[in-house]
Nucleic acid binder design. Structure first.
Lengths: 178, 178
DNA sequence: TCGAACACGTGAAAC
DNA sequence: TGTTTCACGTGTTCG
């Protein structure tokens, strides 16, 4: 009951240990206050409080930035996922098979990153613009135009440009039909 | 020298105040530990340490995200800043004024955000593609083509599409000249 | 003279 | 069994 910590020698150990612990905490406080910008009060409570606010602020900012970058890609890619160009069911698609053996190699080589096709769509009133950057394939334009026209859209203008050796850039402007 | 805290009644005030201060600190510690994810140890030193690491991590992440989003716009806009399309020195720019009174209203309404013109450029080998989404102005295409040709680029293909009432979408493919 | 903030030594609880 | 961590009361300093 009376004396819990008996040996007087180990008592100083306790003091020393506690001293070390406090010093470690102080260092952490200093370190924390050094990375939190705009700190006015340097007392512990304020450091903790401002650090909490700061962390919440950073988390919010990250969430915004991530949503922002997400949207920029999703807006452009969502159509690709839904109508990923229907596979060749046409029997006459083989008409161009022997056309150019070299192009097959380049198809696999160039722009091999799976980011293609890139599809971008934007709308203004009744006008819709669709821009597609895809691999050069026979019949793509017809397929795309058919797809577009089947979506209550009437083609107003279209353009296909070869770019590089193996890619096409298709730009289409259409109007929503009533 | 001997006794600093004299009055025994106010001594309890001191105790109470210190008690309150400690409680406030404890609350802050709990609050901080609650917003730092993946905390294993809940002791004060660890909370502070992990909070420091977490803050640094967030700061780094934000820096990356901001650079990432910066680049996506800078890549597209840098040309606009350097060669911001020369102002209209043409006197016949008013030729379309009486064309359609309704379109003026829509001009102000649609796409009024000052993000135009949008310029996107990409390169593949010697090919360069330039896409410009800008306001409809007489002579823009010629100006742009002249600008492009003055940059060691020879025009391979170009296309202009009206989109909406007041904007144009210009797509140009050019090749680097030796 | 208050009030706030801090570091210290100490006893106890947790593992 | 130690080692670690905590909360407490206290003395002291600063504005």
């Amino acid at each position: 009951m009376a004396a819990a910590t008996r040996s007087p020698s180990h008592a100083q150990d306790h003091i020393l240990a506690e001293r070390k612990r406090r010093e470690k905490l102080s260092q952490r406080f200093i370190a924390l206050s050094s990375i939190v910008p705009g700190l006015k009060k340097m007392d512990k409570a304020s450091v903790l409080g401002d650090a909490i606010k700061y962390v919440k602020h950073l988390q919010e900012k990250i969430k915004q930035l991530e949503e922002q970058t997400k949207k920029r890609t999703v807006e452009s890619v969502v159509l690709v996922k839904r109508y990923h160009l229907p596979a060749d069911d046409d029997s006459n698609s083989s008409s161009n098979d022997d056309d150019d053996s070299k192009s097959n190699v380049e198809k696999a080589g160039c722009c091999s990153d799976s980011t293609l096709p890139e599809i971008e769509a934007r709308a203004s009133e009744r006008d819709v613009m669709i821009r597609i950057h895809c691999e050069k394939q026979p019949g793509v334009l017809a397929k795309v135009l058919t797809e577009v026209e089947s979506l209550h859209l009437s083609i107003v203008n279209s353009s296909v440009m070869p770019f590089g050796n193996s890619t096409l850039d298709i730009t289409i402007v259409a109007q929503v039909t009533n």
